[in-house]
């Protein structure tokens, strides 16, 4: 059976992750958007960890926290940092 404590932790973590996604979409500063993306992937990693899939977590952290932020930083370097309104 699936205990209530796990369900409460899943609800809190996924709710904060949803708020993070909304703030990430309406952000004008691209460098801050990269940092918020790292925060969102960290909360998703907790949710996947509670669901007991550590192999998915291994791939997800390496891609979403590390490589994605580095690639997007080099992309922001090539263009302008602040998005026009």
């Amino acid at each position: 059976m699936f205990p209530v404590l796990h369900l409460v932790m899943l609800a809190v973590v996924l709710g904060v992750s949803f708020i993070t996604i909304y703030l990430m979409v309406q952000e004008r500063d691209l460098l801050k958007m990269i940092v918020l993306s790292a925060a969102q992937s960290t909360f998703y990693a907790i949710a996947l960890y509670i669901l007991l899939v550590p192999d998915v977590v291994l791939a997800y952290i390496a891609v979403a926290v590390g490589i994605y932020t580095a690639l997007l930083m080099f992309a922001v370097k090539k263009t302008e940092r602040f998005e026009e309104a």
Partner: peptide
């Protein structure tokens, strides 16, 4: 809490890639 030592690898990876996030922003 889950009594499984196979779950420990995610902690090592998260501690290492968080350091990469700092270094990327500082390098920019």
């Amino acid at each position: 809490y889950f009594r499984s030592y196979l779950l420990l690898g995610a902690g090592i990876l998260l501690a290492l890639w968080a350091y990469i996030l700092d270094v990327v922003i500082a390098r920019y």
